[in-house]
C-alpha cells in the first residue's frame, strides 16, 4: 500500500524530469537544425574572399567586407558610448540617489524602455540624430540609436549586479572613513564587475543583431567602401543579410546564409570573450 504510493511519487518525479529535459532539449535541437540548415546553404560561399570583397551584383564576387567593418565600427562606438553612460547611471541610481517615489518612477520607466520595440528607437534616432543633430546616415548616428536601444538593458543589468553586492562590504568601507565614491569605486564596483560585464555583453549582442532601427535611420544597403570615421555612411551585417535574403536569385540566398554564419561566429567570439573576462575577474577577486 505504502510502497505503492511511493512508487507513484517516484513515477511523477521521473515524468516531470523527462518533461523538463524535453523542453530544455527542444531549444537546443531547434538551434542545431537551424545551424545545420544555414551551414549547408552557406558553407560553399564561405571563404577568405567572402570576408575581403565588397558586395557585388555577381554572387561569385560578392563579399561582406563593408558590412563586417560597418558592424565593427557600429558596435565599438556603441560600446564606447553606452557602457560609461549605462554603468554611471546604474551607479547613481543604486548607490547615490535617495530611494523615494521619483527613483521608483525612474526604475519602472527604465524597465518599460527595455521593452519598447526597436523600430521605435529607429524613429527616434532618425528624428533626433540623423535630422535634428544633422549627423546624417553616419556610423555615429547608428551607434547613438543603438545606445538608446541597449541603455535600459545595461542599466538594469548593472543595477542588479550592484544590488547583489553584500551591504556588509559598503558598511565596512564606510566604517573606515571612506566617502561614498571611495567605497563604490574601490570595493563595490570590483565585486559587481563580472555581473556588469555579463549584462553589457548581452546588450551588445542584442545590438549586433538588430536590423530594424538601422533600416529606419537609413543605413545603406549597398556599400562599396569601409567607413573610415564616425561620420561615414555604413552598412552592417544584419542589413547585408536582409538585403541578400530578399533577392530572388538562389545564389544570393546562399550568400545570406554565409553572412549569417559570420554573424553567429562574431557573436560567439563576443560571448566567449565575456565569459573569459568574467572568469578572470572572479579569480582575481577571490
Amino acid at each position: 500500500m505504502k510502497s505503492d504510493r511511493l512508487r507513484r511519487r517516484h513515477a511523477t518525479a521521473k515524468i516531470f524530469r523527462l518533461l523538463c529535459a524535453a523542453v530544455a532539449w527542444a531549444g537546443v535541437v531547434i538551434l542545431a537544425v537551424l545551424l545545420f540548415h544555414v551551414t549547408r546553404e552557406g558553407i560553399r560561399w564561405l571563404d577568405f574572399q567572402f570576408l575581403t570583397e565588397f558586395p557585388s551584383r555577381f554572387p561569385e564576387q560578392a563579399g561582406i567586407k563593408s558590412a563586417l567593418w560597418g558592424t565593427v565600427w557600429l558596435i565599438t562606438l556603441t560600446a564606447a558610448i553606452s557602457i560609461p553612460v549605462g554603468v554611471a547611471a546604474a551607479i547613481y541610481l543604486e548607490e547615490f540617489s535617495p530611494k523615494n517615489r521619483l527613483s521608483q518612477l525612474i526604475e519602472v520607466n527604465i524597465g518599460n524602455l527595455a521593452g519598447v520595440p526597436s523600430i521605435v528607437y529607429g524613429i527616434l534616432g532618425l528624428v533626433l540624430f540623423v535630422r535634428f543633430l544633422a549627423l546624417g546616415r553616419s556610423v555615429l548616428a547608428g551607434s547613438l540609436t543603438m545606445t538608446l536601444l541597449i541603455l535600459p538593458v545595461i542599466i538594469i543589468a548593472a543595477r542588479e549586479a550592484l544590488r547583489a553586492v553584500p551591504d556588509s562590504i559598503r558598511q565596512a568601507a564606510f566604517a573606515l572613513g571612506a566617502t561614498r565614491w571611495q567605497a563604490v569605486r574601490a570595493q563595490v564596483l570590483p565585486v559587481a564587475l563580472p555581473g556588469i560585464l555579463t549584462g553589457v555583453i548581452l546588450a551588445l549582442s542584442r545590438a549586433i543583431g538588430e536590423t530594424a532601427p538601422l533600416v529606419m535611420i537609413g543605413a545603406l544597403t549597398y556599400v562599396a567602401f569601409v567607413p573610415e570615421g564616425p561620420m561615414d555612411a555604413f552598412t552592417a551585417l544584419p542589413i547585408q543579410i536582409f538585403n541578400w535574403a530578399s533577392r530572388p536569385q538562389e545564389d544570393f540566398h546562399q550568400l545570406a546564409a554565409a553572412g549569417i554564419i559570420v554573424l553567429l561566429v562574431t557573436l560567439l567570439l563576443m560571448n566567449a570573450t565575456a565569459v573569459w573576462i568574467r572568469q578572470r575577474a572572479e579569480r582575481t577577486g577571490r
Binding site: Q171, G177, Q187
Partner: peptide
C-alpha cells in the same frame, strides 16, 4: 571624519574580497 576616529567591527566578519 568621525568614522576615521571611531572604528567599528561588525557582527559577521566582513573582510573585503
Amino acid at each position: 571624519e568621525v568614522r576615521r576616529r571611531i572604528g567599528m567591527v561588525f557582527q559577521k566578519p566582513n573582510p573585503f574580497p
